[in-house]
Design a protein around this nucleic acid. Structure first.
Lengths: 350, 350
DNA sequence: TCATTTTTCTAAAACGTTTCGTTTTTGCCA
DNA sequence: TGGCAAAAACGAAACGTTTTAGAAAAATGA
């Protein structure tokens, strides 16, 4: 007679009940052990731990999520199109910074790119309604941002990147860009420039408006009339077009230096100027913002402002998790970014 | 006596039970309606739909996930450091492409950046053990990739980007890069170049090795001895260093054209060459790969190969979801990328 | 030793779906 | 009109955790 094997249902993943049985205790106790809560005798705790190891069991997060009504994930929704995104050197390191902290706390990141306002709104709603995240990190704040009301209606926690333009109960994690822009403009003034133009992004973004305002204020403080300012779009093609527009000005209005709101526009604008036969920095000084990887390797290398998106991402997550855990974190200001002087800026032409 | 209000528990989100009650039916029926399965009378179906609308109810995905043991999410784990990632123009549009399809099917993307081999492995394990995803998209295949065994052990579905170097039950979604590289080399040969160098990435990546092999094969097919090949690292600084190394060769070995494995290295290498006083393309022709945003706006503009990562991402997700749903999709080959000829390539110097 | 407190542990009820076996209703035909 | 099959609806169990009320056991004090 063939031996009768104990027939195990194939591949069934062990559950907390299996662990409890092996450790000769109840499921409740196992739960207490893994969440290390008091009230479990040392001997029992060790039996449970041994059983866990033996069965190679890890708690099923879905079940836990249902039970605790926590998702153990946070949402990050970007309303930019993918192309703009891939060339924006901010997000990848920012996300990586977030993940270092998420990893430690066992959370995951739900990322979504939205290419329209409607799909952005829909993504927030779905994530909230389906309870798939515990909170959000809000970037790209705009004037009177609709997301504040949206999240408030569902009483969802979130942290904002930079401070909002109106009062909100959401804490912010910000890195002021005023000092970086001010330092850039100051640097150009010291080099003797007097016609300093600005090429920014869409002004409904708060940080865009703020940087532009800083450029203007710094010039006025030095008694210099601000040169032309152009609202561009952060893209390479926008940078070229804006530069063309500036260089087409009559000679006595034409800027001798251009402050760009990001490196991509700066690099593109610089190429355009070189193509037109201008020398950089002898005829035209150029500055960027971000210190993207190529900045140091362009010809000439690009004077720019280095931010630290990784640290920012980590701080944002720390703050958000604290908020989710019921703490009441205040606004947090990170140290300002620093100006990196390279070869694309030089003394103003005579 | 004060009127006795019906005290509602504040803010409780409606559940399927509330909908069932309002529609005067059972939870099972409501479930049938939302998953539009047969066996529900039209009248009942409409009562349910009305109740859903009235209560503004959407099913809780966590509960559904627990019940169906499906996570409604897929995993994408990138073992690159954030800096390299931010400058790689592939991933953002690829992810965006994935999301268009994920969105349609109600799935989400679990994204993780891993900065070490260990954390990569741990991320796969956690996602699988906790059942937080239904499958994976595997990118950056390496020689004898360990992930095949890892996923097989847990019998998790996945699709690979490009075909593996060994047999695996995982279907692939690939875009062959041979034609792009071949077209590039051919283009240079037609321009009269005979010393054509190659600057690639780490050769343990399959696609890196394959591109390099194509460069070599195309040259040999034309009876040309391949010039020097350098294994670089896809970074701007690597591109500069490799270019320096090539330009330092004795004049009769020095290449008249360099084929770079990505645009970032190409842009950086080009700047380096210009800085050394060479003219591009008169003295040196340069090609890239990716067609990143800046490529058209560099000076000179960069000849490169345009891939379509967005379409690739969409196809990968379609394939993966089919696999998850129990279909048995075969390998899929997307149309090859195309060469974009710009100003960084020209006739070989005499 | 016994009452009392404290600690440890258990059993059962949640969490919000899906699924499945059964019962009820409907529709059809003789 | 009664009988029967098919369609529709129901109710309960299941998914795998956490949490809570209370039982059991251990520790404490008189």
């Amino acid at each position: 007679m063939a031996p009768r094997d104990t027939v195990e249902s194939p591949m069934r993943r062990p559950t907390i009940a299996d662990v409890a049985e092996l450790a000769q205790t109840s499921r409740g106790t196992v739960s207490f052990v893994i969440n290390n809560r008091p009230g479990v005798a040392t001997a029992t705790r060790e039996r449970v731990l041994r059983a866990m190891r033996e069965l190679n069991w890890t708690p099923n997060r879905t079940a836990r999520a249902l039970s605790t009504s926590r998702a153990y994930a946070i949402g990050f929704i970007l309303a930019r199109d993918a192309m703009a995104l891939s060339s924006d050197p901010f997000f990848a390191p920012f996300i990586a910074g977030m993940e270092t902290r998420l990893d430690e706390s066992g959370h995951f990141l739900m990322l979504r790119f939205a290419n329209s306002h409607e799909s952005e709104r829909a993504a927030y709603l779905r994530l909230m309604e389906q309870r798939r995240v515990d909170g959000f990190v809000l970037s790209d704040l705009t004037q009177d941002d609709y997301r504040f009301d949206l999240l408030a209606e569902h009483s969802f926690p979130a942290v904002t990147l930079n401070v909002a333009d109106r009062s909100t109960r959401l804490p912010s994690v910000s890195r002021s860009d005023e000092p970086g822009v001010a330092a850039t403009v100051q640097h150009l003034i010291e080099l003797g420039h007097r016609r300093i133009a600005y090429v920014g992004g869409p002004f409904h973004y708060l940080h865009v408006a703020r940087r532009r305002a800083t450029w203007e204020a710094t010039l006025r403080d030095s008694g210099i009339e601000p040169g032309p300012a152009i609202a561009s779009d952060f893209t390479a093609s926008g940078g070229s077009a804006a530069t063309a527009q500036l260089l087409d000005l009559p000679k006595n209005e034409r800027p001798t230096a251009i402050v760009f709101a990001n490196d991509l526009m700066a690099a593109s604008g610089m190429s355009y100027a070189l193509n037109r036969g201008l020398r950089v920095p002898e005829d035209l000084s150029i500055t960027g913002y971000d210190d993207f990887e190529l900045a140091a390797f362009l010809s000439p290398s690009l004077t720019t402002v280095r931010t630290d998106p990784t640290a920012w991402g980590a701080a944002a997550v720390d703050h958000l998790l604290a908020l989710i855990n019921g703490d009441d974190p205040s606004d947090l200001a990170l140290p300002p970014p620093t100006l990196i002087t390279r070869d694309s800026t030089g003394p103003a032409p005579q």
